[in-house]
Each structure stands twice: as C-alpha cells, then as structure tokens.
C-alpha cells in the first residue's frame, strides 16, 4: 500500500518546466530519501503533495487520498517540516507547539516534544531570537505533533550542525520504528544514506534513479572510483574508456590538466592502457572505493558534455 503515489506529475511555470512526467511511489512504513541538487524540483513536488501548488498535469495521492480534494484530511494525518520558512518572531516555542496541537486536535505535551528535539531550554523564549538551527528544531517538533502517519521533511538538516543533523536522523529512526512513513528531501547524500530504506534521485524535474541504498551503490559499478590525471583528453579516448566492459561511467573533471573520474568494476589497467593507446599520457592516477556521494554525482552532474566543448 503506497503512502505517497505520484503519477505522471508535471508542473510548469509558463515556459519553465519544474517537473516533467514524474512518477514514483513511497511505500507505507518506509523511510524514503528524496535526493537532488538545489533546483531539481524537490520542493515543488512536496508543495504539490501538500496542495500548496496545483499540478499542471498528473495525479498525486497521499495516504490513498487525492492530494487536491482531500488536502485537509491528508494534513491532519501528516507532520510537515517545510523548507525555507521563518517561524513567528513574537511567539515562544511553547506557543508554536500549542498552536500546532490546537490545530490538530492532539493532546501532546509541548515540553516533551521540545525535549525530544533538544530545545527544552528555550521553551519560553520568543522564536525571533532563535538561530537557524533552533528554528529548525522547533519546526521538527511541530511536525511530530499528533503522532502523524506520514512525516514530510523538506531539507530538515538545513542550519543544523553535524550533531544536530545526527539527532534529527535519530528522531527519523524513532518515528520509523513507531510505524510512520518518512519522506524526506535533501541535497546531501550523506544525510539520507544512513537512515533511508530507499532513495530517489531527482534531476531537472525527472527521477533519474530510485533504489535501495545498496542497489544504488551497485548500479554504478559497485567498485572503485579511478582518478586519472592526463595531459589532454579527446572524445574518441573517452568513448573508448566508456565502452570498456568493466567501466560504469567516466567523467571529466577540470581541464588543466584534465582529470578523468572512472567508475570501474574490475581491471583498472585496461582503462590506463586504453588511454595510452589513444596517445594520451597518464600523469597520475589514484583509486578509492565508490561512495554514495559518487553515485549521486554521477546521476546529477553532466557526463561527457564537458569534453565536446573543447
């Protein structure tokens, strides 16, 4: 049973296409990481889920309800941490939570919620004096009001220090253990890989990959990232490297001197000899295990086009 079902969703602003035929599902009870660089369309998608904006085409169901016609019921069963939002300067943390509790008809204790997010000390201070991280904690606490079935967290780590980000992930795990579905967006792979069951990668309004964290790792060769510094590079050589059976992807980084980043799952010497066969001098090379960050990079940065420009 999907908690979120997005079906051929398109959103355009005049000539600009923010989302293009986006389709994916988030299963009930899973922690889903919605990953993509800034401007990929993550917030646009979340805005449609919450009926802040209306789709140009396509259909969205949340908790098996139409996101447009049943928005109030969806939001009564969902906790939301919106992105890029200012809290109410003149209200205290307690008043913010009382408002959320009142609005949802819940009976939570503001003090306990604020203790959970580590903001108990500032409970009666006005939010106007909060740092970005404190505001973020406050909004996380508001999202937790009423034990929601679904949590939608838009860039929840914004403004948090590493310690705060870790605490946030801890809360995501607790909520997931309680049985909640968690949908959270980020532009940093590190934030999602530790906690997500599945990850979807969005780029230019389209889903370019959707898999488990392990599956994603495998999909890009699973093995090693090879970094080769060369005196020059041309299209033929790059194509030859890409067509090697063990090579998952090859990208060019930097121009003086050019550096090749090659995801390779097997013989590295084949890559080096192919380059030399094309008359390219290898000046230096290094290898390292592919991280999820490389996976993210390979999906969200342009591959190959940099070379033709020369």
């Amino acid at each position: 049973m999907p908690a979120i079902s997005v079906d051929t969703l398109t959103k355009s602003y005049g000539q600009t296409l923010a989302l293009s035929d986006l389709s994916f599902e988030v299963e009930e009870g899973e922690v889903f990481g919605f990953l993509g660089p800034n401007g990929a369309g993550k917030s646009t998608t979340i805005n449609v889920l919450l009926d802040f904006i209306r789709p140009t085409a396509g259909h969205v169901d949340v908790l098996e309800l139409d996101a447009q016609t049943h928005s109030r019921e969806i939001r009564s069963r969902t906790g939301v941490l919106p992105e890029g939002v200012e809290t109410y300067d003149r209200l205290t943390a307690r008043q913010h939570l009382e408002f959320a509790i009142d609005s949802k008809g819940a009976d939570d204790d503001p003090e306990k919620l604020l203790e959970r997010v580590g903001l108990h000390d500032a409970i009666d201070k006005k939010a106007g004096g909060y740092s970005k991280g404190m505001s973020q904690r406050l909004m996380l606490a508001m999202a937790l009001v009423g034990e929601p079935e679904l949590l939608i967290l838009d860039e929840p780590s914004t403004g948090l220090d590493p310690n705060g980000a870790r605490e946030m992930r801890e809360i995501v795990r607790e909520e997931s253990a309680r049985g909640a579905t968690v949908f959270f967006s980020s532009h940093i792979m590190e934030q999602v890989e530790a906690v997500c069951d599945r990850v979807g990668i969005l780029r230019d309004g389209e889903m370019v990959a959707i898999d488990t964290v392990a599956g994603l790792r495998d999909s890009v060769g699973g093995g090693t990232s090879l970094r080769v510094t060369v005196d020059r590079i041309d299209d033929d050589a790059l194509q030859a490297v890409r067509s090697l059976p063990d090579v998952g992807s090859a990208t060019v980084e930097g121009q003086t001197p050019p550096t090749l980043i090659v995801q390779v799952d097997g013989s590295k010497t084949a890559v080096l000899s192919t380059l030399e066969d094309h008359g390219i001098e290898v000046q230096d090379f290094a290898t390292r295990e592919a991280s999820l960050e490389d996976v993210f990079q390979s999906y969200t940065t342009d591959t190959g086009t940099g070379v033709e420009a020369r």
């Binding site: 969902t78 919106p82 939002v85 200012e86 809290t87």
Partner: peptide, 14 residues
C-alpha cells in the same frame, strides 16, 4: 513572503 504561511497550511487548515 517569509514562507510562514506554510506553517499554517501544513496544519489541517484550509
């Protein structure tokens, strides 16, 4: 302008 309307409308208000 400040985006705080999203706080209001994330809660079950029309």
């Amino acid at each position: 302008e400040t985006g705080s309307i999203k706080i209001l409308l994330s809660l079950p208000h029309s």
